[in-house]
Design a protein around this nucleic acid. Structure first.
Lengths: 100, 100
DNA sequence: ATCTTTCGTAACAATCTGGTTACATACAAG
DNA sequence: CTTGTATGTAACCAGATTGTTACGAAAGAT
């Protein structure tokens, strides 16, 4: 669940959101954020280290791509408890039914 | 997505896992971990602040319960990208089919 | 009333995090 | 080859995080 910690940061979350939509090189990616390019570079390192992102070198550019596997890992964790909140929300629905 | 940051910590994640199974008082909860009771108490505060947990006072004990809503919020975020990795994994399946 | 149990908070130290600027490397281009 | 563009890394700093021990409040128990 190292990926979960990586996604705790809002900047990294937004980077991933962009890359899930389309691949993008480091510079363009950095220009989206109000922080320095090296700061973004390090966020990319964190994302790379936990497998949420992969980089492909083309000329002197590094094109980043989103990687699916770790997202699935998080989904699996949450899934284990989906039954819990389904139940709770069902109970709420019932409650509202009874009130009306 | 404040809950996501809260769950980045492995201790807090384990606390939530326990409470999703059954409610438990602060002391018993603390005894599960190799850290001090005040440390656990503060983890509980973080979880309370982001709504992942709720406490009920019974006598001089504080019984903690898991709360469903924030888990759902995280699930919703991941859901937005479920299509992405479904697609990737499908592509992998196809690839393996072709190889065999 | 006083002691005991349960639990949160305060104060403090050590580590982690995320930002900045300065610098090094790699490849294209002229 | 020398210059310029695109990136990652190193060094440094401020603020947040997480742990510890000491203390305080609240509610049973004697």
């Amino acid at each position: 669940m190292e990926a979960l910690a990586a996604l705790a940061d809002p900047v990294r979350r937004e980077i991933v959101e962009v890359l899930l939509d389309h691949p993008e090189d480091a510079g363009t990616l950095a220009s989206r954020f109000p922080i320095s390019r090296p700061a973004v570079s390090r966020h990319l390192r964190v994302l790379r280290d936990c497998g949420l992102v992969r980089s492909e070198t083309v000329a002197q550019h590094r094109v980043y791509h989103a990687e699916a596997a770790p997202l699935r890992e998080i989904d699996d964790w949450v899934s284990r408890y989906r039954a819990f909140w389904m139940e709770k929300l069902d109970a709420l629905d019932t409650h509202l039914q009874e009130e009306s």
